[in-house]
Computed example of a mutant assay.
Amino acid sequence: MSYRIDSSFVSENQDARVQILVLHYTENSFERALELLTKKAHGVSAHYLIPEQAAEMSQPFPVYQLVPEHGCAYHAGVSFWQGARLLNASSVGIEMANLGFAHEDQGLPLMARRWIPYPEAQFQAVGALAREIAARYQIAPHRVVGHSDIAPQRKIDPGPLFSWERLYREFGVGAWPDEDTVAFYTRHFPYSDDIRALQGKLAAYGYEAAQDGRFNEAMQKVVAAFQIHFRPARYDGALDIETAAILDALLEKYRNAQRPELNITS
């Protein structure tokens, strides 16, 4: 028997498969990363791999597509963002060839590690690609994230030297807090050691954060991931007024949080 597809009726209840854009660094050289991300034995992949530099400076910067965007690449692993888990099926992954930090610093605290910078040409290629992907699928700013955001207990990429602020300002991609809003919360509603409230706000933005009012190692890693993304000047995972104010500003700007009313003495 034969059949004919009739597409004259279109449901209003649908959305793009791609909801999230995830940025990574490879922890390896481009050559090694290419092998890991393409050979079946390794079991990992990404939609795009961007090398440190172009072979010919006069040519357009090379971007290697390893998996078509409609396919599922294995880049996110055990992950969580805004209530969704196992994000491979709903995301596009971009891997940037970058070692992360000096190998000798593996056991050091994050703030003591020597991080590897991203070459300018590579950053420009990432920004242009991310802008096209975000526009193609109408990815919300708060759904452009790093691997450390969606898996803070085990990942720290793309690290503190990837500039999310520049990605936002130069390419219009991703989220970034407004300075005046941060200043407002810093002045009028500073963090007051309410860990449970801060956990709730981290969860409201998208992070997987326990709601138990305890500041333990797992919570510190979540805070450090947030700081790596939004406050890269200091990412020690310590709770402080500036971190909380940035979080409040992001919730107001992107997650429809209502600004609290000032009292007469504020």
Rank of each mutant, 00 (worst) to 15 (best):
83 G>K: 12
85 R>H: 08
85 R>S: 14
85 R>C: 05
85 R>T: 12
86 L>S: 14
87 L>M: 10
89 A>V: 03
94 I>P: 03
95 E>T: 08
96 M>C: 14
99 L>S: 11
105 D>I: 05
107 G>V: 02
109 P>R: 04
111 M>S: 10
112 A>N: 14
116 I>A: 12
117 P>R: 05
119 P>V: 12
120 E>N: 09
123 F>W: 03
125 A>R: 12
126 V>G: 13
129 L>A: 11
130 A>C: 13
131 R>T: 10
134 A>T: 15
134 A>L: 04
136 R>H: 10
136 R>E: 11
136 R>G: 03
136 R>S: 11
137 Y>E: 03
137 Y>R: 05
137 Y>N: 09
138 Q>M: 12
140 A>G: 07
144 V>S: 07
144 V>G: 04
145 V>K: 09
146 G>Y: 03
149 D>S: 15
150 I>E: 10
152 P>G: 03
154 R>P: 00
154 R>M: 10
158 P>Q: 04
159 G>P: 06
161 L>N: 08
161 L>A: 05
161 L>S: 05
161 L>H: 13
163 S>W: 03
165 E>S: 10
166 R>N: 04
168 Y>C: 15
174 G>I: 06
175 A>H: 05
179 E>W: 07
179 E>T: 09
180 D>S: 15
185 Y>E: 02
186 T>D: 01
186 T>I: 01
188 H>M: 02
188 H>A: 09
189 F>Q: 02
189 F>K: 04
190 P>C: 01
192 S>F: 02
193 D>P: 00
194 D>P: 00
195 I>P: 00
196 R>V: 09
197 A>R: 07
197 A>W: 03
199 Q>L: 12
